[in-house]
Design a protein around this nucleic acid. Structure first.
Lengths: 122, 122
DNA sequence: TAAACATATGAACAATCATTCATATGTTTG
DNA sequence: CAAACATATGAATGATTGTTCATATGTTTA
């Protein structure tokens, strides 16, 4: 049949692949969601921020304490805390001259834990 | 007492903070572990790689299919697949001319799911 | 074995990013 | 209110990274 031959030409390989392409397109989340998701993981993708999160996992803390613990500049820590705060992973409150930072989401622990499990088992 | 006054000078704020600093240093994982962890999340921190993982969540697939689904260059996909493979998130096998890629770890789903939950609730 | 096909890869480039430095904002204390 | 303290922030810079382009590697088929 000529019609099927033409169809064969149009497809890269065969119909199985074509159907696969269609079904995946269905279940793929919206572009914006995927962007936000990648953006979130990007926040976890930095050693300094991971260390800050680990630190706050222990207790809420002011900026200068975190800087001292990580042996880094106050400025560097402040910049990273802002990123963590924008990602809603950390919250802050003022206490006198200090700004106290704390974890803002119970998912922080779960996500880090999952990551740990993965890297530990190879 | 003179001794305590001197101690007060040495401390940034007070002893409570000092003790905090010590205890956190105790529970902080080794530098190398923290680096690997950040490196892992960095892999999730890119839209293209997130899309690839979502795609493979549906079914194992060859490079050209993924490229077609994501409407991207074969080269770009291949480069990203290499990164995913290095992170042990994806595995590959040859099938004739094609290389079939598939998810290599059950944590991929869990990690993405956790991320999704976080961005969905604010 | 030559041509076609599927994938991998290195170099180059633009874009993104973490840190530093200098300085601004905001709070307390004397 | 001025000085000291804690934090935030903008600009600059070096480093990292995703994509493209050209090409190499490896497999099948005619």
């Amino acid at each position: 049949m000529k019609k099927d031959e033409k169809l064969e030409e149009l497809c890269d390989v065969n119909d199985v692949h074509r159907h696969l392409v269609d079904s995946v397109s269905m279940d793929m989340p919206e572009e914006e969601i995927l962007y936000d998701l990648a953006e979130l993981f990007k926040v976890f993708g930095d050693t300094t921020r991971i260390k800050i999160l680990y630190t706050l996992f222990e207790a809420e803390m002011c900026v200068c304490d975190i800087a001292e613990i990580l042996n880094m500049t106050q400025s560097a820590i402040s910049h990273q805390l802002k990123i963590l705060k924008n990602a809603k992973l950390v919250k802050s409150r003022r206490d006198g001259k200090q700004i106290i930072y704390a974890l803002d989401d119970e998912h922080v622990g779960s996500i880090i834990k999952m990551g740990m499990e993965h890297i530990e088992e190879r």
